[in-house]
Design a protein around this nucleic acid. Structure first.
Lengths: 250, 250
DNA sequence: CGCTGTCTTGAGCTTGTTCAACTCCTGTGG
DNA sequence: CCACAGGAGTTGAACAAGCTCAAGACAGCG
């Protein structure tokens, strides 16, 4: 049996009482898990189609860029970043993934992962072995329907993120970034106003298309304006409306 | 029967001999059309599931933002832009769609279109009435598999576009934009080095997150450097490698 | 206790925006 | 058919945002 990873925040780095696990019913993989009746004893689904709560050490990768696609992962606890390694100089950060969110979806069509997924902290994931789905003996139709829903959400999400980021300045991007993380956490039933930005400032900057110095300066500015409280990687959103007004100056 | 729209470029605006139609086998909707055997007489697929080659006048919309999702469209000829109307001041351009490309995919999950799709020139589309797909009498499994493939490609595509645009400066964005259009055209069997940018400079700028003046200046610069030849909306890519080296300065 | 990598802060410089003038199409109506 | 009005595109100059380079601060870890 997989023991849930204990709190590994031994240092002052992380002040919250980790690990926070997402509930199954708030997880992006849940629609498919439901179909598989995985929780039921005697579901008849063979081992290996859905692997639950696999521990992943900090810095470990779920898959490497260009690797053959086999599975979609859902973050159970912890967090991940996905990135395309060293295009010229430095990686290109694609996204960050919190509990309940999916990783590897963008590989479904091409059959290979376009990016590497790395754990930002001690984490755990559930793994849905897509290529073995037919073995599950469930009506393909139902599983596929769930997959369609899941992919559709991903399309919509990445459209919103892309247009939001591209057409705004640095201050707006960072405010949107913080609010986006907060919103995603609330959707998964996690604390939405206080959380750990486990990734480095450089990763955030890379993701937002800014310099890390700019991210640093903007975070300081937000703190001085009373919008957030910052202590290393720990963030407390004090004024959601204030952040929102940066993005949409109505 | 729908007559193929005649060339409507009566002015000097467009120098190419339009209309260029994409071949069915190079269209993003083709996997599904294949499944439906739509080309076969006596396929038994009822009218209304797949509507082919519908003419769309310049400026006409396929659907409005917040409209109820019913169909995915494929551009047969002409071109479209998708945008979110007036967030604050000015629209937010999401993307441009050329022959063979799909429109409306991002609405599959939520059930409503997040954006408006407008024809940039006299165009034609094929319409796949998703909600009526079950009436087609084809095995759901096969249709769904095609849909999964289609959604997966869309996810991968928007990830690439988003990260490409966000982390680059104006010059790189515009070069990437031109090469991206060229690449997409070659994938669909259309002329890849000479084409019409039917959208306004303002639309391009909006899409790339730049000011229209900047787009104008950059295009002029590219022309002075011998990378492209520009005549109003007509573009000739003269030096693909040169444009590429702007994006990836290896 | 000191080393190391990340983060912060400062100063000058580059890039892109804004505002404004002007040109060139394009469509319309006389 | 021509003249004119209006929008789109181009170009210039001043300004602002964000980057780069560099130095210093702070936590984490041996």
């Amino acid at each position: 049996m997989n023991s849930a990873s204990p709190c590994v925040c031994r240092t002052q780095r992380c002040l919250a009482e980790e690990p926070l696990e997402v509930e199954c019913d708030a997880c992006g993989l849940d629609p498919i898990c439901q179909v598989l009746d995985y929780a039921e004893a005697g579901s008849g689904v063979p081992e290996g189609v859905l692997l639950r709560r696999l521990p992943v050490a900090r810095g470990e990768t779920l898959f490497q860029a260009n690797g053959v696609f086999s599975s979609i992962f859902a973050v159970k606890s912890g967090s991940f970043k996905t990135y395309i390694p060293s295009t010229g100089k430095g990686d290109r950060v694609i996204g960050f993934h919190q509990p309940g969110e999916l990783i590897g979806v963008e590989a479904v069509a091409s059959g290979s992962y376009p990016c590497t997924a790395r754990a930002l902290e001690p984490s755990s994931v559930c793994e849905l072995w897509i290529s073995r789905l037919p073995e599950a003996g469930r009506p393909n139709e139902v599983v596929q329907q769930a997959l369609i829903q899941l992919l559709g959400s991903e399309v919509a999400f990445s459209h919103i993120v892309a247009t939001t980021l591209i057409q705004q300045n640095g201050e707006q991007r960072l405010a949107a970034f913080l609010l986006n993380i907060s919103h995603r956490r609330s959707e998964r039933g996690l604390p939405e106003s206080e959380f750990c930005l486990q990734m480095s400032r450089g990763d955030i900057a890379n993701y937002l298309g800014l310099a890390s110095e700019t991210v640093s300066r903007l975070l300081t500015r937000f703190q001085n304006q009373g919008l957030i409280t910052l202590r290393r990687k720990q963030v407390l959103l004090r004024d959601h409306a204030g952040l929102m007004s940066i993005i949409e100056p109505n």
